[in-house]
Design a protein around this nucleic acid. Structure first.
Lengths: 345, 345
DNA sequence: CTGAAAGCGCTTACAG
DNA sequence: CTGAAAGCGCTTACAG
């Protein structure tokens, strides 16, 4: 009686209509009489029938799926994914679900061949790229994606000549806000930890904001107060040690990411510097850890919900043939304890 | 010349063979002569051809995809996913990729209709359920999954009569190790924070281990030292306050999860109790936060890599028609600073 | 409003 | 080793 894996034909037989009518009814086509439609839905429910996505996808050439490519630079055997991206996963999945899309997750090594075949193989209608770093190294691969007519959104800064569409937050403004905050608290010798190479445009933009705030305050940038570092807690720790070893005076640190900031904070504390009394620290990202370190980290928040909405509506738009108009998300300074107040010292 | 969306027929035409031969060659069938195979692979690469997964899936009735259902009890608009599950996502994705499976992520509200249609719609060959809580409430839904012949693995304890297959860690042993550690440090009045209802069997098992360790040490459980709490940092905070309000003496806390432990630690610190000098604290899970709170939290680690391997090999086995023999993962005590040492006080 | 028919792009039993 | 053919389960233009 009840077929194990019912098809639309089974329903048609039971309902006494053609298979085509079943297909129309299940898609709520107004072409089908309401009573017929209702009866067919009823039977489908009883049989526990669900449209075979492979068949529908084959016919329509749509998978209603977005592939989320999470890039991961680490070489370790069991690498940790950047916590900010992980927190975006939930929001992206929800944003996609709201638009009728499933999310396929794929971890990619930057060095590997990317799975650009997600779209070519009709597993996904579009891609979202999270956490790919230095754009210069990957320009070619992005160009290949673009050439293959792949619909994709990159989470990151808008870069002239970069293939594809980017969506990101106003890093320059975030860097400005962070530095401005330190200046407002009376800090004058503000160190910067983070890379500013051409290939890390997000961090470079944060640095630009830092410089603008300094200049606005009438002081220029002091190169001795800049330590370069890739993004990890350990490297933040190392960077702060470098700073201490230089023997240069500083009363604040703006780290280009929370991981760097947290690492730097630990190094300073181990060296006997009090945070925030001796040194104020600001990070960037507002990862969940930020609120939990001691002292709680003041940082610049990128709203992962808005970011996810932007990325998903971006790809879905591209899939539907719309053009994407890039905008910048406004970052928000979250004041906690790591900077102290004017009267702290 | 180069077709936009090449099919196996395009390749066949170029290679001068039948479409069937192309299909065989691309699947590396030994039936095809090596030279023919190589030539076909070459042409496929040139055309940027990838097998249409919808077509292949329709034909073979396999999607080579696993759906990961992440349950989320919170009611808030933008709920945070349990960090332990988030950290498993990466491992699960890798484990699946190693076996040729993609991972489809779906967030589920426990109260909603679950997307049991993932398999019925041939979007996934099997499911992994993470973070579904009280099994009594969801027994019916699990039974429906089972009745629909869905292949699925639940991350959680093995429960008599529960439909489906479970894989989890030895929570009783973990609870024992945690309590034993506190006893070894000379703590005698050890509080327990967490639910022990029949519906939270994991936490109940941790509690069982706690009781066993106490009994082995010759003391029984003191009900005044038990505070019930669902799993969240705030509720851990509240639970510790409850404990303080009771005015009962205690020198240690075993919290059934890290979130509870971290919340409790904050409450105790705010109340002026020193951790670990006045009160030792152990948690459970080893979420990434645990190492970063002050003092760093001693906790029981569930190896997310092994957990993910077990879950993925479990579903893949079920998909391939194997039976699943459940085992328990051995938890591991990770000693940090929150318990102090024998000489701490 | 409904049905008969074509066809999406594969895989694989069958025949040679 | 290779090909011709069937068929997986849908969607949709066409005809009525």
């Amino acid at each position: 009686m009840k077929p194990e894996n019912p098809t639309s034909r089974d329903i048609a037989d039971i309902a006494g209509v053609s298979q085509a009518t079943v297909s129309r009814a299940l898609r709520n086509s107004p072409l089908v009489r309401k009573e017929t439609r209702d009866r067919i839905h009823e039977i489908a429910r009883e049989l526990n029938y669900f449209v075979n996505r492979n068949a529908a996808g084959l016919r329509t050439q749509h998978s209603n799926t977005i592939a989320l490519l999470l890039f991961d630079e680490t070489d370790s055997e069991y690498p940790q994914i950047n916590p900010f991206f992980l927190s975006m996963l939930g929001d992206i999945t929800r944003a996609a679900a709201n638009r009728g899309y499933d999310v396929l997750v794929s971890l990619q090594q930057l060095t590997d061949d990317w799975h650009i075949e997600y779209q070519a193989s009709h597993r996904a209608d579009g891609l979202i790229l999270l956490g790919y770093g230095d754009y210069r190294k990957y320009r070619e691969k992005l160009a290949a994606l673009s050439d293959a007519n792949t619909r994709f959104m990159i989470w990151g800064p808008i870069i002239r000549d970069q293939p594809g569409h980017s969506f990101g937050c106003d890093n320059e403004n975030g860097g400005f806000q962070a530095t401005r905050h330190l200046l407002d608290l009376g800090r004058r010798r503000i160190a910067f930890i983070g890379n500013v190479s051409h290939g890390s445009p997000e961090l470079a933009a944060r640095h630009d904001g830092y410089v603008r705030a300094l200049e606005q305050a009438g002081s220029g940038k002091n190169p001795d107060l800049h330590v370069k570092a890739e993004n990890s807690e350990q490297l933040g720790y190392d960077a702060a040690e470098t700073l201490l070893e230089r023997g240069v005076e500083f009363d604040a640190v703006f780290a280009a990411s929370d991981l760097l900031a947290i690492g730097a904070m630990r190094a300073l504390q181990h060296a006997g510097r009090r945070v925030p009394e001796d040194v104020s620290i600001v990070g960037f990202d507002d990862i969940s850890l930020a609120a939990h370190v001691t002292p709680a980290l003041t940082t610049v928040q990128q709203n992962s919900h808005d970011a996810s909405e932007g990325l998903v509506s971006g790809v879905v738009g591209l899939i539907e043939g719309k053009t994407f108009e890039s905008t910048l998300l406004a970052p928000k300074l979250v004041v906690r304890e790591s900077c102290g107040s004017k009267t702290t010292r």
